[in-house]
Every structure is written in C-alpha cells, then in structure tokens.
C-alpha cells in the first residue's frame, strides 16, 4: 500500500490505541490542531479528548505526568513537539524516567514512549533544528530509536509500547513527507538491531534517521565510480548494536560515520571509538566522520545546507578513506 512516513506513524498510533485501552497520546496540539506536523490528525475525532489529550505548554509537567501515568499502569505516548523543547523536560527524562527502575532496586519500571521531532533542513533555525538524540543516547535507562524508513515508522512504535522501559523515538522532520510503499500487513519491527540498507564491500557508511536518504544517495553516486558502499542504518542509538558495526567493518575494512549531530562529543565519536576499540586490526584506514558544522543551525538556506551532512561531503569523506592505507 502507498503511505508516507507521517501516515505510517499515525497508523501505528491508531493501531496501538485500538489494541490497548491503556494507550493514550498526550502533548502540545496533538488533538484539536491535529499535531504540529499533522502526525495525529484525525485521532481526536476517533478516540476522543481523554485519549488524545492536548496539554498546556508545560513540557516538564506533561512529560512527568506521562512517567507517572506509566507508573500507574497506563501506556502513554507523549509527543514532544521538537527535541529542542524536550530540554524543558530534561529533569523528568533524565532524573526520573531513566533512573526510577534503578533507584527503586527494580521495583518501578516506566513503560512510556516519547515521540520527538528532530533535525534540520527546513529553515527553522537554531531553536527548532538540532539533533540531540546523541545526547539522550548517553543516558543509561533510556532506549533511543531513530526510524528512517517507512517500515520503521510503522513498526517501531508498537514494539516500543511493549517495552517495559522508557523509549524515545526521534522522528526526523525532513522525513514526514517521504512517500513509498509498505506491505499491507506491515507491523511491529525489532528495536534492538541495526539494519543493512545497501550491501557493498568497499566501505561501510554508518548512519541513522534523517541522514539515511543522504547516505543512500551518496552510495549511488559512489557506485557510479565503482565504489560499493555497505550502508548500515543504526535504527537504535541506545543500546548500540555493536555486532552490526563490527560485521560491516570486518567486511569492508573502511568506515565513515554520518551523523547530523555535532562532531565534538557526539554519537559519531562513540561509534568511531567502538570500532577502534573492537576492530582496530580490521581497519585499512582511519574511521571517517561527516557531521554537522559546529554552529547553531542557521536560518539562511545556503548556510543551513552548508552546515549539514551532504552527498558531496559524504562522497569526499569516502574518497579519503578509500584512498588511504592498504
């Protein structure tokens, strides 16, 4: 069937709401407005205001309420309009959601799912465009998902709702309009493993979320030059699927990490370090990285594009590692 990333997430929410009366959606403008990015459009009419719950602009309050409702036996889906706004709820996410199970010695798990929009590319400037999922991936106790495909947009939410612990799903804003075909019976997907989106033996391109389309396009460009790239979609930023990273490196002996986050102290740094720690002798070249420029994301189109990972920069980085070493 034909769908879009947005519609796939909506279908996943609808299925969850129909299948489990403990599930409800809560967040800013998820109801009457239909969702800031129209992801929840129509759900209020179908499920009513108790289960499609508009909240005041109180990120810490409603994120904490989602955690409390999960403790109380519900299965909340909490939408945070953008990852930048989630900073107003960091206390609840980091000090409560991530810690309660441990602090309570295993007594209180927190089965809540947070959906956040992330990423740049839409000229929304420095307070609506950042990619902070790598920050969240630093926190033990959280599971961090980054659906990049229609199947994952459709399937990750349902699996996340079955998870007994807090899950954050980062939806890249540039993906919502992506159209495509998915199976009529598309359903739950695993939320543990990375996936190989393109096979190739010359270099491993490791990425996730909104930069997957950029990397796939880069791989096509490289193929025209005779360089076959293996594209690894991380899918899950925490816990990282080390085995998938190592398998790709063992096969290609070269790796470039493409991450829309900033380079310093980033997820790309973590992946590079893990490859170096565990597969140093498989490498024929130093691990390459393509990240966002170290500036707050600017508004002007040409500056924003210059700040973000692009096909040109990925291809250039691959040339560097393919040209290097043995």
């Amino acid at each position: 069937m034909k769908t879009t990333y947005r519609e796939a997430i909506r279908a996943a929410m609808r299925e969850a709401l129909l299948g489990d009366e403990r599930v409800f959606l809560m967040g800013e403008d998820v109801g009457r407005y239909g969702g800031c990015f129209a992801v929840s459009l129509g759900l209020l009419e179908e499920f009513g205001p108790e289960r499609i719950r508009d909240t005041p602009l109180s990120e810490s309050g409603f994120v904490g309420a989602g955690i409390g409702a999960a403790l109380g036996g519900m299965r909340p889906i909490v939408e945070i309009m953008t990852v930048n706004f989630s900073l107003l709820a960091l206390d609840q996410l980091v000090n409560n959601a991530a810690t309660l199970l441990h602090m309570s010695g295993g007594q209180f798990n927190v089965p809540v799912v947070f959906r956040l929009t992330t990423g740049a590319g839409r000229q929304l400037a420095a307070q609506h465009s950042h990619s902070l999922e790598g920050w969240y991936a630093h926190i033990p106790g959280l599971r961090i998902l980054t659906p990049a495909t229609l199947e994952d947009a459709r399937g990750m939410l349902g699996t996340a709702l079955e998870d007994p612990d807090p899950v954050l799903i980062f939806e890249h804003g540039s993906l919502y309009n992506v159209p495509g075909e998915i199976a009529d019976d598309a359903g739950l997907v695993n939320i543990d493993k990375a996936a190989v989106r393109r096979a190739g033996a010359d270099v491993a391109l490791i990425t996730y979320g909104g930069t997957l389309p950029v990397v796939l396009e880069s791989a096509d460009r490289l193929a025209a030059e005779g360089i076959e790239a293996e594209v690894v979609d991380l899918r899950v930023l925490r816990p990282l699927d080390d085995a998938a990273l190592l398998a790709a490196v063992a096969k290609t002996h070269r790796a470039v990490v493409v991450d829309e986050g900033w380079r310093s102290g980033s997820l790309s740094a973590e992946i590079s370090a893990r490859i170096t720690e565990q597969a140093f002798f498989d490498l024929d070249a130093p691990v390459g990285r393509v990240c966002s420029a170290e500036v707050p994301v600017p508004y002007a189109r040409h500056l924003e594009l210059a700040a973000l990972p692009s096909v040109e920069r990925v291809v250039e980085a691959v040339h560097k590692v393919v040209g290097a070493g043995g």
């Binding site: 409800f24 409702a69 519900m74």
Partner: peptide
C-alpha cells in the same frame, strides 16, 4: 509531575 501522572492513570482507569 509524577503525582499528577499517577492520578491521571487512576482517573482514566
């Protein structure tokens, strides 16, 4: 906020 959420769960249930 946790107390608000616990109470919300009770009310919804």
């Amino acid at each position: 906020p946790l107390a608000v959420g616990l109470a919300l769960a009770d009310k919804m249930a």
